[in-house]
């Protein structure tokens, strides 16, 4: 083997372990899931014994109103939690990006919710939402206001509030880190150029934070689609299907309904949805870059 050839192969050699791990830990289970989704598969069977049914599982789901209800709950949940968390997290970061006494303690306290195990968060909120002995209704009661049926009539809203409480800090710390790495002098230049505090935020800070915010939002979005424990502990998807997000439905399809093939198909739908979002996001950035590049080349031709 010539030295040139060896040199050319070296990078592949170094990448090989990572590829192997990826294949075992990611591609194999994924393939397994896709394969399973084409089968009428009961937990008592091995995958080889299960009958191949083609796209039947997908079609069944497509025609199942409960699936669509679940998908809609998931989308609403994801949309509201990510929107509120982004606004609150970034707002808090803009507010707390200053050096005053006790700020570091305050910041640490803000990120505490994120460190609590999801099951504990679920339990905590379930007790707080309890119709008679919960903190919220007792407080309302003492103020003479009638109690709210938190986990009944307003279950989805209540679940959304709990998620916002837990995950706003995540966006807060990332936004704060982005803010603190902004070029100081550009902000000073903006002050001299006549920008008010709001204009600085709107025209300088937010646009410069945007790359970080996009990634943060995307991470939260993916997470929100997959959230399980908190809702499981708080409502178990109820009442009715009002808080049954897809992840919960997948878990119930597999364990309660014992339909592994349908659960796999459901997982694939969720995966495809997330993939579409992610690709859409990347496509948008690509498109923006391409547009900028086009303007640049146009300039050079003019010049």
């Amino acid at each position: 083997m010539s030295i040139a050839r060896a040199n050319r192969l070296t990078p592949y050699f170094f990448m090989a372990p990572a590829v192997v791990i990826m294949a075992i830990a990611l591609l194999y289970p994924l393939g397994y899931m896709v394969w399973g989704s084409f089968k009428d598969w009961d937990p008592s069977q091995s995958i080889g014994e299960a009958e191949f049914v083609g796209l039947k599982n997908y079609v069944t789901l497509w025609n199942d109103p409960n699936f669509w209800e679940s998908a809609s709950v998931t989308l609403r949940f994801a949309f509201f939690v990510v929107s509120f968390e982004m606004v609150l997290g970034v707002g808090l970061a803009l507010l707390l990006d200053r050096n005053i006494r006790g700020m570091s303690v305050l910041r640490t306290m803000f990120i505490l919710p994120m460190m609590i195990a999801p099951v504990v968060v679920g339990l905590m909120w379930r007790y707080m939402y309890h119709p008679t002995v919960g903190t919220f209704n007792r407080t309302l009661d003492s103020l003479g206001i009638p109690g709210v049926d938190w986990l009944g009539q307003h279950a989805l809203t209540s679940v959304i509030i709990a998620d916002i409480w837990q995950w706003t800090p995540f966006i807060f710390i990332l936004a704060l880190a982005a803010l603190q790495s902004l070029p100081r002098s550009a902000l000073e230049a903006a002050r001299i150029d006549g920008a008010t505090a709001w204009q600085q935020i709107w025209y300088i800070k937010l646009p410069l934070m945007m790359p970080v915010l996009i990634v943060t939002g995307l991470l939260r979005l993916i997470d929100a689609f997959k959230v399980l424990e908190v809702i499981l502990v708080m409502t178990e998807g109820g009442p009715g299907l009002s808080t049954e997000i897809l992840a919960l439905r997948i878990s119930r399809t597999a364990t309660e309904f014992r339909e592994l093939g349908v659960a796999a198909a459901l997982s694939n739908y969720l995966l495809l949805m997330l993939l579409a979002f992610t690709l859409g996001m990347f496509g948008f950035t690509r498109w923006q870059e391409a547009r900028a590049a086009k303007i640049r080349t146009a300039d050079e031709e003019d010049a």
Binding site: S185, A186, E188, A189, R191, I192, T196, L208
Partner: peptide, 28 residues
């Protein structure tokens, strides 16, 4: 600063990285 009727050139230029040259110049 904005009410003092002054302009400033910074050591590290302090340009707005997300704006093009024309937008940088015309920001004020």
């Amino acid at each position: 600063p904005k009410d003092r009727d002054l302009a400033m050139v910074f050591q590290d230029y302090a340009l707005y990285p997300h704006m093009n040259v024309a937008q940088n110049i015309s920001f004020a």
